[in-house]
Design a binder for these strands. Structure first.
Lengths: 123, 123
DNA sequence: TCTCGTTATATTTGACAGAATATAACGGTT
DNA sequence: AACCGTTATATTCTGTCAAATATAACGAGA
């Protein structure tokens, strides 16, 4: 780890794509990230904690996603055995997978021109 | 035009990539668009008018770009024969071309998974 | 030296997204 | 019936980014 000349480059690249439905963002980097964490933790609030995001915000994102898609992406339950929780629906899993696939494709497609662009930036 | 079932789809996709230098956005969708218009019009203010953007904002974007790259992308002059104007430097042209290339690559790379994603959205 | 469209720059205003805060409901378990 | 961690929802606050506004400088040409 110590061998790299700079511990963190001053040059960065951020690619983000958003899917809109009407005037709302149905899916984007934040929402897909949230989906992943919900899938991993089985809980909206635990996902939010791990992302250092307020539960309130996380819940609003979930609500928007569920509203924009034909079928809900997240199914949540209150109380009960595990004192509530949430999970991705089949649709949610598929949508997340597609988004991640999109992400990977963009990464590989931009690799080379990006490198050239970076060379024009200051050091 | 009247035959299409919807005059404008409610589903949209926006892909944008930004290149950061330190904490500033060195290049992004807006800035590259501005570069194009400056190249076409030979003027920052005319470019701004066509983009329905204030001259002030356009100038700030140009200033940021010029600050982030090794060499300025835009060269401007005041007064004089044409009463001032601006043009892209050779570097500016190359950077713009690279960005547009990036854009095209992303478009073609995302085409198919995007279509599938759209099918999950409400109509 | 006045004009004119441009570049150059500072400052003030305003809108809006996200943060913060508050509260309630749920429903198994104990 | 009390408890607990979660989901669910409304409302207020606030920091930030863009818009708006204001001025000045430039410099060839008339």
């Amino acid at each position: 780890m110590a061998a790299k000349s700079e511990r963190k480059s001053r040059k960065r690249f951020k690619s983000q794509f958003r899917i809109y439905f009407e005037e709302e963002i149905a899916l984007g980097p934040g929402k897909s990230d949230l989906l992943r964490h919900i899938s991993e933790t089985g809980s909206i609030s635990e996902a939010a904690r791990r992302m250092d995001m307020s539960y309130n915000r996380a819940w609003l994102l979930v609500r928007t996603m569920n509203r924009c898609f034909k079928e809900p992406l997240v199914l949540a339950s209150r109380g009960g055995d595990a004192r509530g929780g949430a999970e991705l629906t089949k649709t949610g899993q598929q949508v997340l997978a597609l988004y991640q696939q999109l992400d990977a494709k963009v990464k590989s497609a931009t690799r080379h021109p990006l490198k050239r662009l970076f060379s024009y930036l200051k050091n």
